[in-house]
Design a protein around this nucleic acid. Structure first.
Length: 113
DNA sequence: AAGCTGACGAATG
DNA sequence: ACATTCGCCAGCT
């Protein structure tokens, strides 16, 4: 049950293309879990396989990095994003420019529910 | 079983 | 632009 949700969330996150970002709420919605932005954060925090998860492409809807500015984790995330061409300035990114806007057919094809 | 917490979000001043 | 407040809801205690 909860495992299924967790899988959907991780799967959805990994659909975010390089050079783009998505918000927690956006991921929750796409994963079929509306109003569950915090749940996305919860699962990300507790997940093990961070190695193969593109968690750094997930940020707040405001464009802010979810970690305290200057913290180690915020730094790592910023660097990962910068590596993909996403400009991070003062711990936040230009959503207008970098927010992932998934193609409807893309989603219907890749997520089956 | 009731209360607390939080890698959130939107509205408000 | 920034801080506060409030709503949200699964999972923990």
């Amino acid at each position: 049950m909860a495992e299924k949700q967790q899988y959907q969330i991780y799967h959805t996150i990994n659909l975010i293309p390089e050079g783009k970002v998505a918000s927690y709420g956006q991921i929750a919605d796409l994963a079929g879990l509306p109003r569950r932005a915090r749940l996305v954060g919860y699962y990300l925090k507790h997940c093990q396989a961070t190695e193969n998860l593109k968690w750094h492409r997930v940020i707040k809807s405001s464009g802010q990095i979810a970690f305290p500015p200057g913290s180690e984790r915020a730094k790592v995330q910023s660097e990962n994003l910068a590596m993909e061409g996403v400009v991070v300035k003062n711990g936040r990114v230009n959503m207008k420019k970098y927010q992932w806007t998934p193609d409807i057919t893309d989603i219907l094809y890749k997520l089956k529910f």
